[in-house]
Write a protein that binds this DNA or RNA. Structure first.
Length: 560
DNA sequence: ATACCTTTGAAGTTC
DNA sequence: GAACTTCAAAGGTAT
């Protein structure tokens, strides 16, 4: 079980890291094949660097600074704390259950105020920690909704548990403009905008309960209870068992959770509610997303086409549970964004992707475990839900080619050139102690950890140019435990060499199955040659497939 | 206004 | 069972 101060934290905050990001961006820009582009890139880089430095060096501003500045300040402070080994020493997820903390970044709670949430969260999160309460309060109260922009969460996350945001399936509902909930007994219904009085069940869990008291309440989801065997969630057996309290707490749903909720509070529609009557963050208003083609879900009844379609439209969109990487992204995005000036999600994601690979096995294992639990919760909440239900709900990507995309086409398709991967980042990213990892099995992290065979993935990646352009071929990934426990079989073993996971062998969505990132073939082969651990075998297998399927691209790319 | 981009992983579909 | 597709988050960018 991960401990609070556990290890390897991927401490971000380091200035070096920032630099690496910058470089990355630079490289990304370099993608352009022409020199002029590089020049532009340099310019951009310079500006980015300067900006970055500003952020890093900027003296701690005071309250009178602009919201943006404040945001940064907070973030900086958070980073400092992390580095100081304080509160956020490292992102551990001992308490996956934290995700269940009601109201945490609750997208439905228009109160928007992070304050109560944050406070509650902190209190619950580390009930045993000897954390200065003032500090907690100070952090949580700070940015008022008005001060924060919609992107506030980014900053706020820095103060919250890294995973807190993970649970919020739909942040889009977050309303920064409303007053902090803790300032008023009233809670605005996110949908109706009508103020309502929070039900005791909504508040009691957090506010009234002292950290110590909370531990006395057995958590219904024992498996979620984390560290030190201390139940952190004040969820009573008879009461609120929702695995996603955050959701349940949301204005409209919280009342539903209670047996004596006020009818007027209940949304006129039941969409978004689990059969248990408990809402889930994954539920998105049907209005937001609806099936273009009117596809019916299995649950659809047999009504006339018209009515059915209507029903369909009203049906809540239950989002897929986040996978390990998504969880990681949610957590780290804020940091990356704060550390560098990059704003494009695509670029950020590239960085995150690399960082993900640079994570130690243990670290990744945490996310896999979280993801596994997320899936479990999700399945419990929506037994009948299938990923297929969401198919077609999103506009179809314009996927070009694929069919016609031959290796030759590949180059043409790529608008962006490959970026050289900077070793620096890797080194910085991965804890010194960590040999990079890769994967492990979420289900059995320990097993993965045990595997000595794993060559430092980081090395290979560091040495190898990474193409930001296309997706790294997943084939190179070692088997992960993607299907953790439950399902599969895969037990995966750990990964050894780089972060390659063969699990889903298939190529990624629209991108051609080409290797954008020149594979660390040498290292890969080396690793494969070594001990024939299951992991290696799997890797080998995947690679064979890879080579078979796209030999050409591989060669060409690597040559680069 | 909305799709795209970009990442990895999970799960679905297709063959 | 391999290969492929879709979606999950996110937010700037492009259309």
């Amino acid at each position: 079980m991960p401990q609070l101060n556990g290890g390897g934290g991927d401490e971000l905050g380091a200035n070096d890291e920032l630099i690496s990001f910058k470089d990355e961006g630079e490289q990304e820009e370099k993608i352009s094949e022409n020199v002029s582009a590089e020049r532009d890139l340099d310019d951009v880089k310079s500006s980015l660097v300067n900006e970055r430095m500003d952020v890093v060096r900027r003296p701690q501003p005071r309250a009178d600074l602009e919201s943006y500045e404040k945001a940064r300040e907070y973030f900086t402070e958070a980073l400092r704390r992390q580095q100081d080994g304080g509160f956020f020493k490292s992102p551990h997820y001992p308490g996956y259950p934290f995700l269940m903390i009601p109201d945490l970044t609750n997208p439905y709670l228009s109160s928007g105020a992070l304050s109560p949430s944050a406070r509650t969260y902190l209190q619950m999160k580390w009930p045993l920690l000897d954390v200065p309460g003032t500090a907690v309060l100070r952090d949580s109260r700070s940015p008022t909704p008005g001060q924060l922009s919609n992107k506030v969460p980014v900053v706020q996350h820095a103060h919250m548990h890294p995973l807190t945001p993970l649970i919020t399936y739909s942040n889009e509902h977050f309303s920064p403009g409303t007053p902090p909930a803790h300032l008023s007994p009233e809670i605005l219904d996110p949908k109706t905008g009508i103020p309502r009085t929070p039900h005791p069940s909504e508040l009691s869990p957090y506010y009234p309960l002292s950290p110590g008291a909370m531990g006395q309440i057995p958590h219904p989801l024992g498996w979620l209870v984390p560290q030190q065997g201390q139940p952190m969630y004040p969820i009573t057996a008879g009461g609120f068992r929702h695995p996603y309290p955050a959701l349940a707490m949301n204005a409209s749903m919280s009342s539903l959770v209670s047996s004596h909720f006020s009818p007027h509070i209940v949304p006129h529609h039941h969409h978004g509610l689990h059969q248990t009557g408990i809402p889930h963050p994954a539920i998105v208003s049907a209005a937001i997303k609806q099936e273009p083609n009117g596809e019916l879900s299995p649950a659809a009844n047999t009504k006339s086409p018209v009515s059915t379609k209507k029903e369909e439209d009203k049906k809540p969109h239950i989002k897929k549970p986040l996978n390990a990487f998504m969880l990681y992204m949610k957590e780290m995005r804020a940091k990356v964004v704060a550390e560098c000036t990059l704003k494009e999600s695509a670029a950020i994601n590239q960085i995150l992707g690399r960082r993900w690979h640079s994570l130690s096995r243990e670290e990744q294992a945490k996310y896999y475990e979280l993801a596994r639990k997320e899936r479990q919760l999700h399945s419990q909440l929506y037994p009948g839900w299938s990923a297929r239900d969401n198919y077609g709900k999103r506009k179809k990507r314009k996927r070009d080619n694929k069919t016609d995309s031959t290796p030759e086409d590949f180059s043409a398709r790529n608008k962006k050139p490959c970026v050289q991967y900077l070793p620096q980042e890797k080194m910085i990213d991965s804890p010194a102690s960590s040999h990079g990892s890769m994967l492990d099995s979420p289900a059995t992290p320990s097993a993965a950890l045990a595997s000595p065979a794993a060559p430092a993935p980081t090395h290979s990646e560091q040495a190898q140019p990474l193409s930001l352009t296309t997706k790294p071929d997943r084939h190179h990934h070692f088997p992960l435990l993607s299907k953790p426990s439950s399902s599969s079989s895969s037990s995966s073993s750990s990964a050894s060499s780089s972060s390659y996971q063969p699990t889903s062998a298939s190529g990624r969505q629209s991108t051609p199955p080409l290797l954008s990132r020149p594979l660390p073939l040498a290292s890969l082969h080396a690793s494969l040659l070594s001990p024939p651990s299951p992991f290696h075998q799997a890797a080998l297998h995947s690679h064979h497939a890879l080579f078979q399927s796209q030999p050409l691209s591989l060669v060409t790319k690597s040559a680069d």
